[in-house]
Design a protein around this nucleic acid. Structure first.
Length: 480
RNA sequence: GGCGACGUGGCCAAGUGGUAAGGCAAGGGUCUGCAAAACCCUCAUCACCGGUUCGAAUCCGGUCGUCGCCUCCA
């Protein structure tokens, strides 16, 4: 089987061949840390989390770099967003940056997103950015004016090749802010002169200033991944100008192809409207997590192909949550049944089903990371497993274990929607014992037809998020 | 105005040439002390029009509609 990726650069689905056999160098544009992360960030980074997880599952040695942009973004007014926030809060700009960086990682951790291997910060790589700008000036791709440096778009004929734009069209749109000192309205800043009140500033060959928004991704991807690397990812809303500028900077500076495969994630709307800082209609990740579990949110975000847009709505997330509960239900049941299952090897028949599921799952994921279709194979497996567990004969421990392992493998390791800790963790052992004690007491009450006591135990456990289900062969419990 | 994406059952959503995966919801059964869960059954011809083809949701043209980007944004 071959892994295929839809390459936005060529607009074709291509068989994936990494630059170096067995190794994948991958860069994804990270957040600007100036505010709380919202569910739009969750979509992008959950989607790429699964891409990375699947590549690793498939045996690739992945080096995953995702930047933290903590300098360089300007408002229309020319004001730095971070500085503005810092002034409002009367703290140092780097405090703002530090605060939101920490919150960002907390949110990502809470969503079960594996951390990137390297999370370089723009502010920590100013020398690299200056080096690159110097190179661009030397090669005639950039020019300095009054302490600022701009990229000369006309010097790079490929400008627009990713987004399909032409410089002439851009000018037609006339929505580009005209800055007098730029030679061409489409030219973009590599380095900006710092006005006296600008606190985030560094010395440079052009005087005190700070880097432009796009240059950090070019400089840091080169530093950690090389001039040419395999996969560049990001949200599609950044295709222009950001991604386009990255290509222009990197390919002009190094005279080498930049990223070989471009993967862009579709945007997320909230109740039909795009979330944006300017509109202020954001739902933060921490707010969403008060309402839904990380697994439910991941399931929702993975139930649409990564390249498609998603509308985050109450009903859609609820639907996904319930779909997830079905899978979680079977996993919980398997784990409960394993405790009292008769010893024995796994049944051949079941192993065949499991292998078939794994094969189909991989076929779907090999096809441009089709997570929703992969999820569907788990749902189909779930129906088969429930059917199996409802049969009179109890399954052997070997069979149950094999099933459990497949869920851990595909649902846990790859999709990240099966909690791997929980039941087995040391801290949970005591809790499990207590719950079983209550379940046993309830069984005694039921045997004596003391329904009041039986229902009281069940209802109060339900209040704590523990669901009891009476099966012909005894009561099992699971966490909500 | 320019560029791009999309339009599949009540909802979400796979499927890019051979007669529509999966989940949610709904209805009917089975099971249960009651419940919950589960199982079984039922539920679409793919926005519209025209074309190509033995055959199209899937290719081409057009129409309508939704969304995104062009300005900070994942």
């Amino acid at each position: 089987m071959a892994l295929k990726i839809y390459n936005f650069l060529t607009r074709k689905k291509e068989t994936f061949h990494p630059l170096y056999e067995g190794k994948v160098n991958m860069y994804v544009c990270g957040p600007t840390v100036q505010d709380n992360a919202h569910v739009g960030h969750a979509k992008t980074y959950v989607n790429f989390d699964v891409v990375v997880r699947y590549l690793r599952y498939r045996g690739y040695d992945v080096l995953y770099v995702q930047n933290i942009t903590d300098v360089g973004h300007l408002l229309d007014s020319g004001e730095d967003r971070i500085l503005k926030k810092a002034r409002q809060a009367s703290v140092a700009p780097m405090q703002i940056v530090e605060r939101y960086t920490r919150l960002y990682f907390e949110d990502m951790d809470a969503l079960g997103i594996k951390r990137p291997d390297i999370s370089p910060r723009a502010s920590g790589h100013v020398p690299e950015q200056i080096e690159m700008i110097k190179k661009l000036i030397d090669q005639g791709h950039a020019y300095e004016v009054n302490g600022s440096v701009y990229y000369d778009v006309s010097s790079f004929p490929d400008y627009g090749k990713l987004s399909g734009r032409k410089v002439e069209d851009l000018v037609e749109g006339s929505r580009i802010a005209v800055i007098e000192e730029k030679r061409h309205p489409a030219d973009f800043a590599l380095w900006k002169r710092a006005e006296p009140e600008h606190l985030l500033r560094w010395p440079s060959p052009w005087g005190e200033g700070f880097p432009g928004w796009h240059i950090e991704c070019s400089a840091m991807s080169r530093k950690y991944l090389g001039e040419t690397f395999d996969i560049h990812g990001g949200g599609i809303d950044n295709i222009f100008p950001h991604n386009e500028c990255e290509i222009a900077q990197s390919e002009a500076a190094h005279n080498q192809p930049f990223a070989r495969y471009w993967m862009l994630v579709g945007s997320l709307t909230l109740d039909g409207v795009k979330m944006s800082k300017s509109l202020g209609n954001t739902l933060t990740i921490s707010e969403a997590l008060k309402r839904w579990s990380p697994e439910a949110i991941r399931t929702f975000l993975l139930s649409t192909h990564y390249s498609n847009p998603v509308d985050f709505s109450e009903s859609a997330v609820e639907g996904a949550r319930k779909g997830w509960q079905r899978i979680w239900g079977v996993v919980s049941l398997i784990q409960e049944q394993m405790r009292k299952a008769p010893a024995g090897k796994a049944s051949e028949e079941v192993l065949a089903i499991l292998n078939d599921t794994r094969t189909r799952f991989m076929q779907k994921m090999d096809d441009d990371f089709n997570a929703p279709a992969g999820l569907a194979t788990l749902q189909e497996l779930t129906r088969q497993v429930f059917f199996l567990l409802n049969e009179g004969d109890s399954q052997t421990s070997g069979t149950l274990q094999a099933i459990d392992e497949l869920y851990q493998e595909l649902g846990g390791d790859v999709l990240g929607i099966i909690p791997t800790d929980g039941r087995g963790a040391a801290s949970a052992e005591r809790e499990s014992g207590l719950i079983r004690l209550l379940v046993d007491l309830r069984a005694e009450a039921r045997a004596g037809k003391d329904w009041a006591t039986a229902d009281k135990i069940r209802n109060q456990l339900l209040q704590l998020g523990i669901i009891l289900e009476d099966r012909p062969d005894g009561t099992v419990w699971k966490v909500e």
